[in-house]
Design a binder for these strands. Structure first.
Length: 503
RNA sequence: GCUCCGGUAGUAUAGACCGGUCAAGUAUUCCGGCCUUUCGAGCCGGAGACCCGGGUUCAAAUCCCGGCCGGAGCACCA
């Protein structure tokens, strides 16, 4: 093993995959149930699987596991949204499969296992078989000869059993110390007249369970390295029986720990329910940790990728801090975000002693003057200029202090009169402000600004005004509102709408 | 209750398989300084961690045992 874990530009290299040399080519997969949009919780499986495939010049497969038309119903809409999410993330699969297309394949293997005496059709009441298994005792069905089981299987397929009346189980070890491993269920009956599958309707009424479909597919698709959460550890044990009976070798499996992010729920059912009930504004509600929400807030996919690479595949449970994501994103976004003045909670600033009109040009980016400038015009009336400053700054202006209006001039604060702040022109050069250590604040000329709503991560709205040059931007652009934070321009209509990313 | 998996600074991660070079590295966060016409970025410095108790050993973050804490599974869900 190499001692140097080559670090590229602050990006952590992933630890090597086990036994790569055993396989001709690394093949990984991401296998979601399309019953929700993707979120940060899925990021680890997707990005790690994709990254490892890329690292070893292998293949990355997307497999939709839509085998529950009843409880965890999938939908075509989610399949499309998942594909879009993955493309946005930069994890485009080399191949795509959908399990509801492969039902007949699963049937073939089911039959083979029954014939070989490794599986049986159990027609006991669900509670009864559960109890027997807990005690490690066989039910009468388990002892039936393969021919009888085959007959029952045919009956299952032809619709002779209703929901709950028959289930196919894989024989394992009834004395296994972990009851979860004992004779696990592989197929059940679903009344698809009542619960039609979104893709294949009521074509099938016998549906494979997770361990069967997943186990068969991982082998058939040549998956060499399975990367998934450690909640699947017992599933691995279950599936190993399947592999033994079929004479297959189980792939390498990496089980990473549970990922949480402070303050956000990564539960798919809660997200789906919340959106359906109108608790959230949609899949991209800023309070959610869905990729759609992160995207809308101006989090770049590359930041998510770096975060996940940072975290790696270790099995310890972790709770991420948003700061961690923001730090990555800031590094990506800071060099490209144009700067604008945004005044929240605006307060009038009336400055006297301004003898002539002034036009100032301020670079769109302090480090990249070549990118252009924005222009402001101040037209004093009888030596009095009316500007706007943020309420938070206004509160802190003590009478008598000198303050620099960024890129404009220095003022001496007189005091607050009514709802406006009064001040007098002090001097123009920046050096004067520097000499006295004056505070720098940003401003807008009255009449040269547009209304702007910034949607915050908690879905609250900050009302304010933004300079008219914001029209130079376009929707989806990430900008920095100086002394406020980074935000993504959402729309440039009558009223400007932006989503706050982070400081 | 049963089965399994974890526990390094506020957060995340390296080191653990193959004990010493780890009085523990890195990123972020926080604090201070420099720089800068942003409370942004950059640069420099600082603070901050091996869950606890035993054992093995010349030597333990690393191996073993016990405890504590956290998580997952025990569905005719995935």
């Amino acid at each position: 093993m190499t001692k140097e874990k080559g670090k590229v530009e602050g990006e952590r290299a992933l630890p090597p995959l086990p036994n790569v040399e055993k396989y001709g080519r690394v093949v990984t997969r991401f296998a979601p149930n399309p019953d929700c949009v993707l979120h940060l919780g899925s990021a680890r499986a997707i990005i790690l699987s994709h990254e490892y495939a890329r690292m070893y010049n292998g293949r990355f497969i997307l497999r939709f596991e839509d085998t529950d038309p009843r409880l965890k119903k999938s939908s075509l809409q989610f399949m499309d949204l998942i594909r879009e999410d993955m493309e946005w993330l930069g994890c485009v699969p080399d191949e795509e499969y959908i399990q509801s297309d492969r039902i007949e394949i699963y049937y073939e293997y089911a039959e083979r296992l029954i014939k070989d005496g490794y599986a049986y059709i159990c027609t006991c009441k669900p509670e009864e078989s559960r109890a027997k298994i807990m005690f490690g005792e066989p039910c009468p069905c388990r002892e039936l000869p393969p021919e009888e089981n085959l007959r029952r299987w045919e009956a299952m397929l032809s619709g002779l059993y209703a929901e709950g009346e028959a289930v196919m189980r894989i024989k394992t070890d009834l004395k296994h110390p972990n009851p979860a491993i004992r004779d696990w269920p592989a197929f059940r009956v679903i009344d698809t007249k009542k619960y039609p599958h979104p893709r294949v309707g009521s074509k099938y009424r016998v549906w494979p369970l997770y361990n069967f479909a997943c186990g068969i597919d991982d082998h058939l698709m040549g998956i060499t390295h399975i990367i998934r959460g450690k909640e699947h550890l017992t599933n691995q044990e279950r599936q190993k029986y399947l592999y033994r009976y079929l004479g297959w070798e189980y792939p390498e499996a990496i089980h990473y720990g549970r990922l949480k992010i402070e303050g956000a729920s990564l539960s798919k059912s809660k997200i789906v329910r919340g959106v359906r009930e109108g608790l959230y504004t949609g899949w991209d509600d800023p309070r959610l940790a869905t990729f759609l929400a992160l995207k809308r807030r101006g989090i770049r996919p590359e930041a998510i990728r770096r975060l996940i690479l940072d975290i790696g595949p270790r099995p310890a449970d972790i709770t991420l801090s948003w700061d961690n994501l923001y730090a990555h994103n800031r590094k990506i976004v800071d060099p490209i975000a144009d700067r604008f003045f945004f005044i929240w909670d605006p307060v009038k600033l009336i400055v006297d002693g301004v003898e002539r009109p002034i036009t100032v040009n301020i670079p769109l980016h302090p480090d990249h003057p070549e990118r252009g400038k924005r222009t402001f015009n101040i037209r004093p009336v009888n030596g009095v200029a009316t500007l706007l400053i943020s309420g938070r700054d206004a509160e802190r202006l003590q009478p008598g202090t000198i303050v620099r209006l960024m890129e404009l001039f220095n003022i001496t604060v007189r005091g607050v009169y009514g709802d406006s702040v009064r001040a007098s022109f002090h001097s123009e050069p920046y050096i004067e402000a520097k000499k006295v250590g004056a505070q720098l604040i940003h401003w807008l000329p009255e009449g040269e600004c547009l209304e702007c709503n910034v949607i915050m991560p908690d879905n609250s709205i900050i009302n304010g005004l933004v300079e008219k040059s914001i029209r130079m931007a376009h929707p989806d652009k990430i900008v920095q509102f100086e002394r406020f934070g980074f935000a993504r321009i959402d729309s440039l209509g009558e009223k400007i709408v932006a989503y706050f990313a982070h400081k």
